[in-house]
Design a protein around this nucleic acid. Structure first.
Lengths: 345, 345
DNA sequence: GTTAGTTATACTCACTTTAAGCATAAGGAG
DNA sequence: CTCCTTATGCTTAAAGTGAGTATAACTAAC
């Protein structure tokens, strides 16, 4: 018997509005997953990324296939699109575990300019920090890191079967979450999510374990300290399937990329004030920046140029409107926006 | 009728020996491509990356499937592996154009320590600059850039159907190849290869055009100024299918990654002299570096630590043997090796 | 219409990092 | 012992960064 292969395309569609990064979600339209949501007990369908299978006969390119699904599910036309990652391990979609087709999902990151409010049907813009509250350092270091995450992960590390596994876990935890004097690296979004998943601190892990059924016992004994988290509630808003993992990949990638490619401008209107630019960068990086240095960096770095026009509605002194300076592409090898003076105190 | 999907796994396996980066190739074992190589006229089979289809029923993860093919074709066990990119557009494999299954190929980058000489059968280690001679700036800026590439690309740009296309082409050319005062960015390997491909300066383009057959006429009129390159010979050593594109992706990614993750050490034995380390970095980056500054960078950056042992056979004063300093992972957010003083004069 | 509040922008200053080169150390070959 | 080779230490100027202070230009409230 031949196992068929199905390619599924997933889109992480990002916009920034009101100084918050948002992603486009749909209510999970896949019936085969009702098991999961029923088991979750809250009766509501989980958020999902826009997604759908590639039609191997008609979709000439993967991106075109993605564009089609996104248009159909949300009414949005994509502009800037980049491939993120392909997920193909068995076990990733617990609902279709045995006997079904092999699912390979290819994820894309797309950036759009405005909220383009005409989203259709069940589509919604959601603040992406709802899914990753520990990533939002805009106001302060989230207290949940010390109060919930660190202790729970410490318990998980201690539960390791031998000392070498335990110290490997501890090292991963310290590096990923910046504990014990290690610095916080905002790009390690995926590593952090994976740790929480393995430690059983996100709802998806519980779901996967439930649906996996037979393999559950095994899993409890194994290195993945699953289930039975006492005292600690599950962290962040869950998503369908492994979509939160995909989202974590996207966030990490975007946080890295703004530093060496001028992608932020895909999220801004053609002209903008420097503060607007700064707010978008801060929203993505999850960190607040030093205003004067930020300004110096982008201006002296040749990334923007003044237009001579001014934005009247800033509240205080009117700010000049700037635009992206395309020539920078041929002047500097890696034109991006560094993060000057990120929240030292 | 249902179009089936086949997943093909490709591995770019990199090692550095004798200060040269090498990749592992096999003689293209796929019969369906004999058309191509016959049309090429040299009778020899093209180099290919180790590759093979995913078995959706038995390969539990994509990486395991890849490992199997690599083992079978080359006898090598992979260590460090990272996913590169997934290629899925129709047209990418001209030989299987109409009617065949839809092929999605997922490429991986693997780093191995030594030449592990026991390569089996038709496998070979090849200097990767054979495929991309214009990327090798170790001795000097390759003269072929000014003598062959720049003029041929300029002709291609001029042949554009309208002025906006022409100026877009010119901008791409200048940025990619560092012409007209733009700096050379060693990471833009793929962009450079794509340009040469589109301009018909690599053998693969000619092959694709030949095999495409019917679509050829169309293509000649279209924006892709195909065929009939007078005076300019085809550049670099060709590979089967789109494997050279995959290789370009790998080279670009690796050149980027050494700057922010300590991946070079995957290519070195556990202890090494600083000059050996420098040579590996130079080989990958294709640039020569300032010795004293390189040393200061890696030592003060905490990436390596001395072992107290010395390498006796350096020719001059014995060099201390260093090893990777793992603690750097928890000290610095993005521990990699910058390129101090790259060939200014 | 003066005052307080808000945002924008200019400039400073100490400190660190980098590019580039000079100088010295420690081996081998003859 | 001398020369050649490679390793390693140190210097200096220039550039870049972090963290401010100061001033400018507007709005809203009284």
């Amino acid at each position: 018997m031949i196992t068929p292969v199905v390619i599924v395309l997933n889109g992480v569609i990002v916009a920034v509005t009101d100084d918050r990064p948002r992603i486009l979600t749909v209510k999970n339209p896949d019936d085969s997953l009702s098991v999961q949501t029923a088991d979750l007990g809250d009766g509501a369908a989980l958020d999902a990324l826009p997604f759908g299978p590639l039609d191997p006969a008609t979709d000439r390119t993967l991106e075109l296939g993605l564009n089609g699904w996104v248009r159909e599910q949300t009414g949005i036309e994509l502009g800037y699109v980049e491939q993120l990652y392909s997920f193909g391990d068995r076990n990733r979609e617990p609902g279709v575990r045995q006997g079904g087709p092999r699912v390979i999902s290819i994820a894309y990151l797309a950036l759009v300019r405005e909220e383009q409010l005409s989203v259709r049907g069940e589509a919604n813009w959601r603040d992406w920090y709802e899914y990753f509250p520990w990533e939002d350092w805009l106001w302060r270091r989230p207290s949940m890191i010390d109060e919930q995450i660190a202790p729970a992960l410490a318990r998980w590390a201690k539960a390791a079967i031998d000392t070498s596994l335990r110290s490997r876990r501890q090292e991963r935890i310290e590096i990923a979450f910046g504990l014990e004097g290690a610095p916080w690296d905002q790009e390690r979004v995926l590593e952090r999510y994976e740790l929480l998943y393995e430690a059983g601190l996100v709802a998806e892990q519980a779901l996967d374990t439930i649906v996996a059924g037979r393999e559950r016992q095994e899993s409890q004994k194994s290195s993945k300290g699953s289930s039975r988290q006492t005292k600690t509630s599950l962290l962040g808003r869950p998503m369908a399937l492994d979509h939160r993992r995909i989202l974590a990949t996207a966030l990490g990638r975007l946080r890295g990329k703004i530093k060496y490619r001028p992608v932020v401008f895909e999220l801004l209107s053609p002209t903008f004030t420097l503060l607007q630019l700064q707010r978008v960068v801060e929203a993505l990086a999850g960190v607040r920046l030093h205003k004067q240095n930020f300004r110096r960096l982008v201006e002296k770095g040749g990334l923007v140029e003044g237009t001579g026009q001014f934005d009247p509605k800033t509240g205080g002194r009117p700010a000049e409107l700037f635009c992206f300076r395309r020539e920078v592409l041929r002047e500097r090898p890696a034109p991006g926006i560094g993060l000057p003076g990120a929240l030292t105190k």
